[in-house]
Nucleic acid binder design. Structure first.
Length: 849
RNA sequence: GCCGGUGUGGCGGAAUUGGUAGACGCGCUCGACUCAAAAUCGAGUUCCUAUGGAGUGUGGGUUCGAUUCCCACCGCCGGUACCA
């Protein structure tokens, strides 16, 4: 038998909240909207509804946000706490390929299961705002946003997106305009996975390779989003955000800004430009390296070297990315036979090609300064190329391979300058001599936005006479055609090519057959929650402004670190574009971000099917109840920390809830749970009980604000132990305690509260209102104060006595009392007291020897 | 290699404007209740060569006093990798 009947009252309260729309929040303009309340938007990263259902990692973040949401609600906020489904994705499509089952069917099934599981945990979501990225009404607006991107360009002067119509007004040609669109067609080499039958974004490559899929470089015509234009803003706007510094750093490094200069080298009439962050070392450039894919390679290669160079290029091309990565220690390369002229000293330097120079970054060519660059040094050592020192280290370290700052030497007009000054002087020289200019580069690449998949949003694009254009908004949403066979065709246009009727838009126009990546839907879902049923706009102006008050849309966003550079970067980018175009009032989507730590299996390993250490929330709910699961996940340790699951720990918090239950409830002779005689309607007089209750109100409130849930729970355990020990517990104290526990364990607290209120109705607390609708309790300072305190006495820093003294005892009295103590005397007798430190109300330390 | 995080009992973890190290929970031990067990309640539980001493990864430093501040190092976890 269960120690308390959670199996009956948990479903009861879940039904009550649902029937009474307890957690429904109104929008501006709605009948029951209360504009006087401040808003609080607390968001979970919405799940992908996989076939496996929830695992115990999901409710960790969800419980944390639920506690905050319920707490803020009790403190008088309009709380927006929604849930939805990121339901496009490869597993549903792969299942469809295997079984012929339409992805929409499996997605619906999975989603029903997820919803059932989440409801069984009692989260206070406003289910009327549930969204689903695969819902045609949702897709419509994802496609609409793409159309906005398509019809926008990035104005360099104002550093913001503007409508394409401005360029048309300037009389720019169609070709020139297409070059500028934020959504554009590119025919660059992309990451193509033959076995997945699709291309992947740079950010996704590692993930899929880790799952055993092959990925190769292949030139394809693809849709791209011009996220690189936002590089600088994406870095700058991180600063004021309340995000973990590590995530900010991760994004900053991913965007990868570096400042330096472009330098032009003459090569028998050809101009080759290189990028360097160290223009001050130009005198030390003893050779040049081009990427094997560099366009000038074939032109400059001499007849004698032609064969060897072509063989090297072929060898590089056949190497997979993986092999290139593994071999990154061992440098390879080949001499082209050509020589370039170092612009600053006229030296003839050999031009090599090597795969340690990437075509995708900078200009695909470098000046090699082996004395002060590790890679160049390694290469020069291997191929016996000259190494000339041009920087003298500040310390005594070896100059060979020294990459730090110092003083320029062997560098003509730079000699004696500090690195910083030498950089500036060289850049000035390059400008004055028309040999280069200052340059900033970013590692971030434009976002490859098309996929060759069925289960994604089709592009709202048609092609006619080789040109693309968007379909009219009235034709949105554009749904995928029905297919019988979802198999990839190997055709880089994707599986939609099979739907010949669907493709045909008119006699002369055809639909785009690519679809959008899974990230598209998650880029803006938080906005849709604010106004989920709007059929005229993606979000209404009023809803947007209300839920974005205080300069941020989402007040608190909780999710895993795995999205540090993907979802969180993409969403910020879309948000900024929509802000630039005047559709949003904030510049950033997520004010505060918290990453919950991974929950490991009992064995300390990551939970996985193959290890058999996966814990299902359903099993825990069945055995211990939802409140126990919620409470345990919060009690395990700090939210942000990685921590192992322990079923014994669930038992522990379950015991705690049983204790709370038995404080209020007792079993009648017939086995029925009834309110205990211990609960009285008297005014509380027990000082100790008043103190612990008010301490609990104070600490739990403060700890929730700090998201320090484990310590809040430990305080509630202390309070419960005091209630258990007491002969009588006044109903008002128990009620205040239940309010504190309510955000953590909402079912049991509602149930007990209902029993107390029925048994002990009072003017202050009439029947009929549930706990969740009552306010957060307040504590009184007067109950926290004690007249006596325990003071620690140390001799030479070691604890020798504890004294109980009046709280307001004077320093002198405290010192005298301490010195007079028998235990203390044992250690001071025979020694001279040199010094006495007295911290009032806390400690006395006697220094004696 | 680089960047970030972290290190406290048998275990999860508490405590930082420097002031009783180990809150709370798990586990374990003993006791009460019971024919017995479970559940529940009560007592105890950092370690040791134990009237004392040691102790928050290691070694130093600052201080009357350091888990907390400073310097050097080590282990583990995560990210990233020829980005010029």
């Amino acid at each position: 038998m269960n120690p308390f009947p959670f199996d009956t009252f948990e479903p009861k309260w879940q039904a009550h909240w649902e029937d009474n729309k307890t957690f429904h929040v109104a929008n501006p303009g709605d009948a029951n909207f209360d504009a006087s309340k401040p808003k609080y938007f607390v968001l979970d990263m919405f799940p992908y509804p996989s076939g496996a259902g929830l695992h115990v990692g999901h409710p960790e973040g969800y419980t944390a946000t639920d506690i905050l949401g319920r707490y803020k609600r009790m403190n008088g906020h309009n709380v927006l706490h929604p849930m939805g489904w990121d339901a496009f994705g490869l597993p549903a499509e792969q299942y469809a390929i295997k079984t012929g089952q339409h992805p929409r069917v499996t997605t619906e099934q999975n989603l029903d299961n997820f919803r059932r599981q989440l409801k069984s945990l009692g989260f206070g979501y406003d289910w009327s705002r549930e969204i689903n990225t695969t819902d045609p009404e949702y897709m419509k607006w994802t496609q609409w946003i793409f159309i906005q991107l398509y019809h926008s360009y990035f104005c360099e002067e104002d550093q913001k997106a503007k409508p394409i119509s401005e360029l048309e007004a300037k009389g720019m040609s169609r070709e020139e305009i297409d070059e500028q669109r934020l959504a554009f067609i590119s025919e660059a080499p992309v990451n193509w996975s033959p076995d997945l039958g699709t291309v992947l974004a740079n950010e996704e490559v590692e993930e899929w390779k880790a799952k055993g899929h092959t990925v190769e470089r292949r030139p394809l015509k693809q849709w791209m989003l011009r996220i690189t234009k936002y590089s600088q803003r994406l870095i700058d706007d991180l600063a004021p955000l309340d995000w973990p510094e590590s995530i900010k750093l991760l994004q900053t490094n991913w965007i990868g800004k570096s400042t330096g200069a472009e330098v032009s080298f003459d090569l028998q009439g050809n101009d080759i430009t290189v990028f360097t962050t160290r223009p001050d070392t130009l005198f030390g450039a003893t050779y040049m390296v081009l990427a094997p894919e560099h366009s000038l390679v074939s032109e400059i290669t001499t007849a004698e070297q032609k064969e060897a160079v072509e063989a090297y290029i072929k060898a590089c091309a056949s190497k997979s990315d993986m092999e290139r990565g593994e071999m990154n220690k061992d440098k390879t390369g080949i001499f082209t036979g050509a020589y370039a002229t170092n612009p600053v000293n006229g030296e003839q330097i050999p031009v090599w090609i090597a795969d340690y120079v990437m075509m995708g970054y900078g200009t695909g060519a470098i000046m090699a300064v082996p004395a002060h660059d590790e890679r160049d040094f390694e290469f020069a050592t291997k191929f016996d190329l000259p190494v000339i020192q041009v920087v003298e280290p500040n310390d005594k370290s070896d100059w060979q391979g020294y990459t730090g700052n110092g003083k320029s030497v062997n560098s003509g007009f730079l000699d004696g300058m500090k690195t910083k000054d030498a950089k500036r002087a060289m850049i000035k020289w390059l400008i004055d001599n028309n040999k280069g200019k200052p340059q900033t580069n970013f590692k971030l690449r434009d976002w490859l936005f098309s996929r060759q998949r069925y289960w994604g949003e089709p592009f709202p694009i048609i092609w006619e006479n080789g040109q693309h254009r968007t379909i009219p908004e009235s034709e949105l949403p554009l749904l995928q055609p029905d297919l019988e066979d979802f198999k990839p065709t190997g055709d880089p246009r994707g599986p939609l090519v099979k739907a010949t009727d669907w493709i045909k838009y008119s006699e002369t126009a055809e639909r785009e057959t690519n679809t959008m990546p899974q990230w598209a839907g998650s880029c803006w879902y938080y906005l849709r929650y604010c106004d989920p049923n709007n059929s005229d706009r993606f979000i209404s102006k009023e809803a947007e402004e209300y839920w974005s008050a205080d300069g941020a849309t989402v007040d608190l966003y909780v999710g895993g670190t795995e999205h540090a550079v993907l979802h969180l970067l993409y969403a910020r980018f879309w948000h900024k574009v929509m802000f630039d175009l005047g559709h949003l009032s904030t510049n950033e989507p997520f004010k505060k971000l918290v990453n919950q730590g991974l929950i490991l299996g009992e064995d300390g390993q990551k939970m996985s099917k193959s290890l058999g250490n996966v814990v299902s929330p359903d099993d825990v709910v069945n055995e211990y109840g939802a409140d126990s699961l919620r409470l345990y996940e919060m009690f395990m340790g700090p939210l942000t920390q990685v921590k192992p699951w322990q079923m014994k720990g669930v038992e522990g918090v379950s015991r705690f809830l049983a204790k709370v239950w038995r404080v209020a409830m007792t079993q009648s002779d017939e086995g029925k749970w009834v309110i205990s005689d211990k609960i009285t309607n008297d005014e509380p007089t027990d000082k100790a009980l008043l103190k612990v209750t008010h301490e609990t109100i104070k600490k739990v409130g403060e700890d929730i604000e700090k998201m320090s849930f484990n310590t809040a729970i430990s305080q509630m355990m202390i309070c419960t132990n005091a209630f258990t020990k007491a002969d009588k517990v006044p109903a008002t104290l128990l009620r205040d305690f239940l309010k504190c526990l309510n955000p953590f364990a909402p079912h049991i607290t509602e149930e007990i509260h209902q029993h107390i209120t029925d048994a002990h109705p009072s003017a202050k607390c009439s029947t009929g209102r549930i706990l969740s609708d009552r306010g957060w309790p307040s504590y009184k300072e007067e109950f926290l104060i004690e007249s006596e305190v325990t003071v620690v006495v140390q001799v030479n820093g070691k604890l020798r006595a504890k004294l109980t003294v009046a709280k307001d005892i004077s320093k002198e009295d405290m010192e005298a009392t301490a010195l007079a103590d028998e235990n203390v005397k044992q250690y001071t007798d025979g020694n001279t007291v040199r010094k006495v430190i007295v911290i009032p109300g806390k400690l006395v330390n006697i220094v004696a020897n």
